[in-house]
Amino acid sequence: MNKKQLERMRTGKGFIAALDQSGGSTPKALKGYGIEESEYHSEEEMYDLVQAMRSRIIQSQSFTSEHILAAILFEKTMDRKIEGLYTGDYLWDKKGIVPILKVDKGLAEQKDGVQLMKPMPDLDRLLERAKDRNIFGTKMRSVIHEANAASIKKIVEQQIQVGTQIAAAGLVPILEPEVDIHSSSKKEAEIMLIAEIEKQLSQLDNSVKIMLKVSIPTVSGVYSTLMNDAHIVRIVALSGGYSRQEANTLLAKNPNLIASFSRALLSDLSAKQTPAEFDKLLATAINEIYKASV
């Protein structure tokens, strides 16, 4: 574990840029960027285009450590290079931004109001590769749709189990038990989730360090107590389908909760924009999200 990166994640001002769209979400991400599916004819071409998009974002003069603490990468992005450096090394060595890797393999089918993560049989090998690429931490997502205490317990158990495996490998895991913002029982689910996280964290050795990525809560400040837990490096929030304006307004009501936005960060960008237009719109988004985070 890189101690300088750990301290930056624990105390730094800024937010996390989520650049980890993968698999089935990649065509949607490219379409949002102005590239239609008819413009590429293979998976490799698709990933070349998304790498070009991410490289353009990361290389932008607006994308700096002044506002951005870390960036979450997709596995194929980790394995590709920017200006001759692996993406994680470029982020840290050239930009001072901490590299994080998405490790989950997607969501299982919804059952009893939740979606657990699919199995990750090759996780140990992926973690070794991540360490070789100088990655600091990981991120993995599951989803809660209903306030079902037994199911939420399963979500947290799975996240903690995999998270401790990742921590044992020397990386800092971001656990992401997202609560669907459209859930009719979102408030109740969040209360259950926090109680279950507190219970399960109390059973871990204090040497285990994790981060949490959560939906912006219905009750502002409800995660504040959890932030003081000895295991918690930082708690960050996803935009979850809110527009950037909505997400920023809600986030700003939560002290010390910082953004880890994807769509809300990238929604105004297009492959067709000039470099000046691109940098200006990215700078606007970054500045707005930063202000809401700090």
Rank of each mutant, 00 (worst) to 15 (best):
L6C: 02
L6V: 01
G12D: 02
K13A: 11
A18F: 03
A18M: 14
G23F: 10
S25K: 03
T26R: 07
K31V: 06
E37Q: 08
S42M: 07
E44L: 01
E45M: 12
L49E: 02
Q51H: 14
M53Y: 11
R56W: 15
I58R: 07
T64P: 02
S65K: 15
E66P: 13
E75F: 01
G84H: 04
Y86N: 06
G88V: 11
W92Q: 00
K95L: 04
P99D: 01
I100E: 14
K105A: 07
L107I: 08
D112W: 13
L116E: 05
L116A: 08
K118H: 13
D124H: 09
R129W: 01
I135G: 05
F136G: 04
G137Q: 04
G137F: 00
M140E: 14
N148H: 15
E157V: 07
G163V: 02
T164E: 03
Q165F: 14
L175C: 05
L175Q: 02
L175F: 04
P177L: 10
V179P: 03
H182L: 15
A189T: 07
E190K: 11
M192T: 14
I194C: 01
I194K: 14
N206M: 05
K209S: 05
I210E: 08
M211W: 15
S215M: 02
P217Y: 01
G221N: 03
S224Y: 12
T225F: 07
M227F: 03
D229F: 09
I232N: 07
V233M: 01
A237I: 06
A237M: 14
S239D: 09
R244F: 11
Q245R: 15
Q245F: 10
A247M: 15
N248P: 03
N248T: 06
A252L: 13
L257M: 12
F261G: 00
L265A: 04
S267N: 13
A271H: 15
P275Q: 02
F278S: 05
D279R: 13
L281N: 12
A283M: 12
N287L: 14
E288I: 03
I289H: 04
K291A: 03
A292W: 09
